[in-house]
């Protein structure tokens, strides 16, 4: 396996949790609900995935556990923000704070214990294709799920009646209500879908990305997933692109940190020069690149006020109290 292939493989691994979590949040936001609790649901999914995999010895049960806990945890948010009409920004933050606390408490027993790894699923024949075979067809199951999610969500949102209903609730809940649509039910389901996705994404962190439990291991990925939804102007395919862009940035800086200049002396002069220049940047600055890139990307996207206004679900973040 070549070096480039190895790097690309790690990019895929870094992008997958971002993609899954952002896909879930996209559906929630399309229904008009802004759930800032992605980070909290993700970390709950990470510890739940780890714990269930430990107990059962089966990483797939771990992933399902992460998904279930994520969905259940999002119900807390849904009850407050939807039924009790609380401020969605504050409630989402509360979910994140509670998730980080609960996962820390739950995870104490698992610190330092080697985890169960979700092994790659090698698809026969297809994985033998040169260059792309091993990259696309010898991945862990969650990678396939993440790609399937992009197809499924974009088909659901734009090609089905239920998807149209969900978008109409997000764009005008009063009209949707007047047409007899059960606004609350749609939103509850959308939030729970988001929670399940965030939980699954979290379990990817503790079952594939690093097969152990580390407190706060989501390290802001939930927030980056939220930024991806804005970056993608609420469109599924653009999220795929964004997730891989961020996966690449994360991995590049890690590879530069781990790079041994002695190993790349054979490279042509200018490339070696660039690498040694990058290598001279302190590790902490390289580590902050994904966060800085998030800010830059958000600025570039939001500069165009009109475009943002057109794409944002009109009811995003607003509570709904039906007239009786």
């Amino acid at each position: 396996m070549g070096m480039l292939e190895a790097i690309l493989l790690t990019v895929f691994t870094a992008a997958t949790p971002l993609l899954i979590a952002a896909m879930g949040e996209l559906v929630a936001e399309r229904s008009g609900v802004l759930n800032l609790g992605v980070e909290g649901m993700m970390i709950m999914g990470a510890i739940a995935g780890f714990a269930f995999a430990q107990m059962s010895g089966n990483p797939y049960i771990g992933a399902l556990g992460g998904m279930a806990v994520g969905a259940l945890f999002s119900l807390l948010f849904a009850f407050l923000a939807l039924t009790l009409v609380t401020n969605q920004v504050a409630t989402g933050l509360a979910l994140t704070i509670l998730g980080l606390g609960l996962s820390g408490l739950w995870g104490e027993a698992f610190v330092g214990i080697p985890g169960v790894k979700l092994q790659p699923v090698v698809i026969p024949l297809l994985s033998d294709i040169p260059l792309i075979g091993r990259l696309f067809f010898a991945q862990d199951a969650l990678f396939y799920v993440s790609i399937a999610l992009v197809f499924a969500v974009s088909w659901f949102l734009f090609k089905t009646k239920a998807g149209l209903t969900l978008r109409s609730v997000g764009d005008n809940h009063h009209s949707a209500h007047a047409l007899g649509i059960n606004v609350m039910r749609v939103r509850y389901l959308a939030v729970m879908f988001g929670g399940a996705c965030a939980g699954l994404a979290g379990s990817h962190l503790s079952l594939v990305y690093t097969t152990q439990w580390i407190e706060n291991m989501s390290a802001g990925r939930g927030w980056i997933a939220l930024a991806l939804v804005v970056f993608a102007s609420w469109r599924p395919w653009r999220i795929l692109f964004g997730a891989y862009l961020f996966g690449a940035i994360t991995i590049m800086q890690l590879h530069i940190q781990a790079l041994n200049l002695g190993d790349v002396e054979f490279l042509p002069g200018p490339i070696y020069g660039i690498l040694s220049l990058l290598k001279s940047i302190p590790a902490q600055f390289l580590s902050s690149l994904p966060y800085l890139a998030t800010i830059v990307v958000l600025v570039l996207i939001s500069r165009n006020r009109r475009l943002t206004l057109i794409n944002t679900p009109a009811m995003l973040g607003q509570g709904f109290v039906p007239d009786r």
Partner: peptide, 23 residues
């Protein structure tokens, strides 16, 4: 100036500040 969501930018800057202090 750019209508950028302040929730996400202010939060991202927390991680940057933590790494800066560490350095």
């Amino acid at each position: 100036r750019f209508n950028t969501n302040e929730i996400l930018t202010s939060l991202m800057l927390v991680y940057v500040a933590q790494l800066f202090v560490d350095w």
